[in-house]
């Protein structure tokens, strides 16, 4: 019977290094997904608050679909669907080609679209909280619509949307656990392997849960720091 500390050590016997690699994969996946999701989410929110009915309709369809599907199903749709789609396309040129899609990229796209559909709602309600006078004020001092957006609206938008977005970040961090189902070696996957090999399932999954908790606590410190920084800029105004 090995001791718990030997199992969790970083040596050849222990699983510490494997789990640390899983943490690296989880964190990097979440960090790569965040800018993608924020960008798409912002664009969808722009579409949803547009004056054109067709634009709003297109944005609403996007949100309805990706908020309604389970995250795991979205992941499988992207993972297998993209694989089959690209395979069909490649076979037109080279019939014998076998396409293997990267599970990291599939996870990034799937989590990105889910994140963006929620983020678009957060951005939309932030847009609605900014009064019309701010746009009119921007135009009346001679700023172009693009400049108004960048210099007048965005700084206020970020401040209003921040609490909602930090919530979404914590949800994203938890959702990354799903990529273990398509074979990406994240925290859950690594602890599953360790649990199967060593038969200490409770300990390894307990460690996995504690790591997620630690990531959430670290994130909330980071979020507080960002909130203070943004709040300070507001005070200087």
């Amino acid at each position: 019977m090995q001791s718990v500390w030997a199992l969790l050590s970083f040596g050849p016997e222990g699983w510490g290094d494997d789990i640390a690699y899983g943490v690296l994969v989880t964190v990097s996946l979440a960090l790569v997904t965040l800018p993608l999701g924020l960008l798409i989410g912002f664009l969808v929110a722009l579409a949803k608050q547009s004056s054109e009915a067709s634009m709003r309709l297109a944005g609403n369809i996007y949100t309805t679909i990706f908020r309604g599907l389970p995250e795991l199903l979205t992941l499988f749709l992207v993972f297998y669907g993209a694989q089959i789609g690209i395979q069909q396309a490649v076979r037109l040129v080279r019939p014998e080609a076998v396409v293997e899609i990267n599970s990291f990229v599939a996870g990034m796209i799937a989590l990105g679209v889910v994140f963006s559909s929620y983020a678009s709602e957060v951005f939309l309600s932030a847009f609605r909280a900014i009064p019309r006078g701010q746009y009119e004020g921007g135009f009346s001092v001679g700023l172009s619509p693009r400049q108004t957006m960048r210099l007048v609206i965005l700084p206020q938008l970020v401040r209003i949307a921040l609490p909602g977005l930090s919530n979404l970040w914590l949800i994203l961090l938890k959702d990354t656990a799903l990529v273990s189902a398509v074979g990406l070696t994240d925290i859950v996957r690594q602890s599953s392997i360790a649990a199967r090999v060593t038969k200490h399932a409770f300990m390894f999954f307990g460690v996995a849960c504690l790591i997620y908790l630690a990531l959430a606590i670290i994130s909330s410190f980071g979020i507080h720091a960002i909130e203070r920084w943004v709040g300070k800029r507001e005070a200087q105004r």
């Binding site: 990354t176 273990s180 925290i187 649990a195 399932a201 999954f205 997620y212 908790l213 606590i217």
Partner: peptide, 23 residues
């Protein structure tokens, strides 16, 4: 509340299904 809201549902399910098998 902090534990169950701060960890993924998947990890909790694994902890109960596979983890309780240790006991």
């Amino acid at each position: 509340v902090y534990f169950f809201r701060g960890t993924p549902l998947l990890a909790q399910t694994f902890l109960i299904y596979y983890g309780f098998g240790s006991f």
